[in-house]
């Protein structure tokens, strides 16, 4: 099958076949990362711009390295050092960058739908690197990839997503992706951090971490996104930790070979104790490595074509 899309905006609109194609392509790129020379000439002559209107280390660096591993040129834009401060609109900024003959824009913005908006307006490929609390599709894909790499398959696994679901675009992308691949998803967090009607996305909801962990194959921990909370939604970090942090005792409820994941940044000692984050079951750093392979696959699938 072929990947016919111009853009990668969300996992909601991808089919299971398309997700599988991306994951299979990523598996081939994963091998490139183990070579002494971690570079292939595939996207020579292509230019990609990172457009980040929100802070990021991991994602921006990951896209930058992915592009460089494929021999594409990549330029970085961040809103804090740009003409946005002089009053330029989002679309004008993007149009100016496109006028410099780039082939793809990697966009992060605090408002949901910005990538969709730019994808409609601009002829180049748009990759959503996080739009508000909406989606973060490449993180969702690398989570799927990391699970598949360890478990062999995603279908029928019990996956718990625990923490600040309301502000998490990763949770949304994970839910869409996991459901399409046939996993059973549970979400868990304090009621103030669970969005209304979350069950309509096809997940089980529980407010008890013990219930969420029971017979779990994979647990994805999320941090509390304090910077996005306009009012305090948890009484104190101490209280949050008592109810929703992982610990050895609670983990015993999960399957013995449970995988522990986290999209980062990790708040050690809040949602996850340092010992568990660094334990053998934790694949947090594998997720980061796999992120490069997955983003290489996405860039390859979006940019290698001429018919479109």
């Amino acid at each position: 099958m072929r990947f016919e899309r111009k853009d990668l905006l969300d996992l909601r609109s991808l089919s299971a076949e398309e997700i599988n194609l991306i994951l299979n392509t990523a598996a081939s790129f994963r091998e490139v990362l183990e070579r002494p020379i971690k570079k292939v000439p595939t996207l020579r002559g292509k230019t990609i711009a990172n457009l980040f209107f929100e802070p990021s280390t991991r994602t921006r660096l990951s896209f930058e390295l992915s592009a460089k591993r494929l021999n594409a040129d990549i330029v970085n834009f961040s809103s804090s050092t740009s003409s946005v401060l002089k009053g330029e609109s989002l679309l004008d900024t993007a149009r100016n960058i496109v006028a410099m003959k780039v082939d793809a824009l990697v966009v992060r913005h605090s408002s949901p739908g910005v990538s969709h908006f730019l994808a409609q307006k601009l002829p180049v490929s748009i990759i959503n690197a996080g739009d508000g609390a909406h989606e973060h599709p490449t993180q969702g894909l690398l989570d799927l990839y990391s699970i598949r790499e360890r478990k062999g398959n995603i279908a029928n696994l019990n996956v718990a997503i625990i923490g600040d679901i309301a502000h998490s675009r990763v949770a949304r992308s994970d839910i869409w992706g996991l459901n399409k691949m046939g996993a059973r998803v549970r979400v868990c967090g304090p009621p103030t951090l669970i969005p209304k009607d979350i069950e309509k996305l096809g997940v089980e909801l529980t407010y008890s971490i013990e219930e969420a962990l029971l017979d779990c194959d994979v647990v994805i921990m999320l941090r509390i996104q304090r910077e996005r909370q306009k009012v305090s939604l948890v009484p104190s970090l101490q209280e949050y930790r008592d109810f929703f942090s992982l610990n050895r005792e609670k983990l015993k409820l999960a399957k013995p070979d449970v995988l522990i994941m986290h999209p980062g940044p990790v708040n050690r000692g809040v949602e996850i104790p340092a010992k568990i984050a660094d334990s053998r079951q934790s694949i947090i750093l594998n997720q980061v490595t796999n992120g490069i392979a997955v983003r290489m696959a996405v860039l390859y699938l979006l940019l290698v074509h001429s018919s479109r």
Binding site: R2, S28, E31, V32, T42, G45, H305, S307
Partner: peptide, 23 residues
């Protein structure tokens, strides 16, 4: 060896080669 990543016609072909594994 999969050679697709090293093709010289990636910007010209209309289809998308399936990347198989180099092992």
């Amino acid at each position: 060896l999969d050679i697709n990543l090293y093709r010289d016609d990636l910007s010209r072909i209309s289809y998308q080669p399936v990347i198989r594994s180099t092992n």
